[in-house]
Amino acid sequence: MTHPLKRPDFDVIAGWMKPGERVLDLGCGEGELLMLLAARGLRGWGIERDPGHVLAAVENGINVIQSNLEAGLAGFEDDAFDHVVLSRTLQTMRHTQQILAEMLRVGREAVVSFPNFAYWKNRMAVLNGRMPVSEDLPYQWYDTPNVRFFTMLDFESLCAEMGIVIRDRQVLDERGALITEEPNFLGSLAVYRIGRGG
């Protein structure tokens, strides 16, 4: 996982959270989001698999737990956190439904961000016969950590199937600007705030 310096989705995510709340960041990298949230008065814990990132997160003074997300969130209590965040990581995971269910078990609500495969430039790339490479999909097909390729419509349909409620949605273009029209066509990165249905 790379963590580009510019993370406009962090502003969206932070905007959904209030000081004093507790956040679990899955695949927290070097702890960039948790540092931003700590500066805004939230309390955070991160999960990270990569030793280099764990070390950097410790250097950054972040609570980081070295663990593989594919093993789920066993050991964490139900409703332990106000928010569970999975930013730009869902597309790298095999156990998609399991992690979504686990996030909404241990968190009151969850935030998921992912590159939208239906972004118009990605569609163009495929129409031209090539797999897309962009700001939000910055890998070649042979070295990508991404194993799931899906669109906003696909994600929303899975949420409906799993009884997950979409509470908020912000969509960004490649430059990080907010998109309001035709999001599944003009949006490169989608950020969702989701909760348990019923």
Binding site: V54, N63, V64, I65, S67, A80
Partner: peptide, 15 residues
């Protein structure tokens, strides 16, 4: 680690 996280205490863990 899990007990500390349950209590929302400060903890880092390296394996």
């Amino acid at each position: 680690v899990n007990a500390l996280v349950k209590n929302h205490q400060q903890v880092s863990y390296a394996e």
